[in-house]
Design a protein around this nucleic acid. Structure first.
Lengths: 232, 232
DNA sequence: CCAAAAAAAAGAGCAGTGCTCTTGTTTTGT
DNA sequence: ACAAAACAAGAGCACTGCTCTTTTTTTTGG
């Protein structure tokens, strides 16, 4: 019932897309803080109040951009995963990590929107959780494949409450992975974004100059930490 | 020459402090995005234009708050370091990590100001680098002490360019630490803030519930990664 | 002590923002 | 053809950062 659309509906979708597109341009150029509804409307040749028929508030427009950013980053990760198919697990892992890093460096404002400070009163709507999970799932896919071929090194048992979280998570995601591995992964996942954050947000300025070599080294360390490489 | 001050100068310092204090309150309550010069002035019973005699722009006021935040977090880290004196190196390490986490959770907006997305055109002034380094230096202090007592496990040699960065850094900081250890530390340092970021910014919602146990486990992992614990 | 100079405060105003409300104008189903 | 729904436009509100100009206060030098 959504396959065929009336002219009205089609026009609406087009305008919505145009708004998102122009907003995305402004976001990429100036960052989320300087994204202005009025400027978007101006650029599109419409009056600002008309824009509210398509996005009820600035936050809603931002949410749309957040979803786009999650999706773009997720796609970059998934593409890297696919391209590295057949390689060793650790190589596939670092390939995905590297893709995340490169996307973040190429789209710093979009990246800041999703992994920087959340906007003040902002509560992530449900629509974002799917796209937001894509990078994590791509990394987990590497673990699953490694586990299936017996290439995943066993990990130490975490404390009970942590195990419980991991068990629940394994259940929700429907992934067949040892509980300690999934618990360890969660921490590693967060740590990966620590590395990317510091580089994108300038915390490595005057500290790390050989950025790529540094990151590759660290990503390999993460692979080891998550059981894709032997300890030592 | 700055010990004795005229009444004028003293009044100026008082007003400056009052502005910073009120701004800090608004920051803690509403976050940096909603911090308004006019609201600060209003609360202080002065007209907004008068405020510009004390802070030439909103960014300058924000910079002052950034420095305060770095200092507060640094002090929390240093206090934890001092309190854990005499303990095992790994315990001192996790004590500092835990202090960073707790401070961040207790002051999310201040934390976001320094470890979230940088404000749009913002370039960190030189005044921030000292305070910004305090947490890192507290962690490095643990490594130094461990190294002095021979408790620091040797690490694998990183690639040459990474070594070069670490060497330069060791030189600048004047710390007597093996180059691989310092290189490894830099990555671990960023990863620590990845963990804190994810928790403070809500990325762990519906993923990790046993937050404290999870973090402690991860921080111990970081201690191992940095050579304060044997591998295994 | 009192006038000149410096500093601070106040006021008005500009250009911009998000958002709402009211008034016209199209387009859509009946 | 017509009522209803969707859309566009305009005016306007309350707010923002910031810059001027004018007034008041404080410090300083003769």
């Amino acid at each position: 019932m959504s396959a065929i659309k009336g002219a009205r509906e089609r026009a609406r979708d087009e305008v919505t897309a145009a708004i998102k597109e122009e907003a995305g341009r402004q976001l990429a150029r100036e960052g989320a803080a300087k994204l202005s509804l009025r400027a978007v409307a101006r650029e599109l040749g419409m009056v600002s109040s008309a824009l509210y028929r398509y996005f009820p508030s600035r936050d809603d427009l931002l949410t749309a951009l957040i979803i786009d950013a999650y999706d773009a980053l997720g796609e970059a990760a998934e593409t890297a995963l696919a391209s590295a198919a057949g390689g060793a697990p650790a190589e596939r892992w670092t390939a995905v990590c590297g893709a995340v890093r490169r996307w973040a460096l190429a789209h710093p404002h979009e990246y800041a929107l999703i992994y920087g400070s959340p906007v003040p009163g902002y509560q992530a709507p449900q629509d974002t959780v799917g796209p937001a999970a894509r990078v994590g799932l791509a990394l987990i896919a590497v673990l699953r494949d490694a586990h299936r071929t017996g290439a995943l090194h066993p990990m130490a048992e975490p404390p009970a409450p942590v195990r419980e979280d991991a068990r629940r998570l394994a259940d929700e995601l429907g992934v067949d992975l040892p509980v300690p591995a999934l618990a360890g992964f969660t921490a590693t996942w967060a740590q990966l974004f620590g590395l990317v954050n510091f580089e994108v947000f300038g915390q490595f300025n005057h500290v790390v100059e050989a950025r790529e070599a540094f990151f590759d080294q660290a990503a390999t360390g993460l692979a080891r930490q998550v059981g894709l490489l032997p300890r030592e």
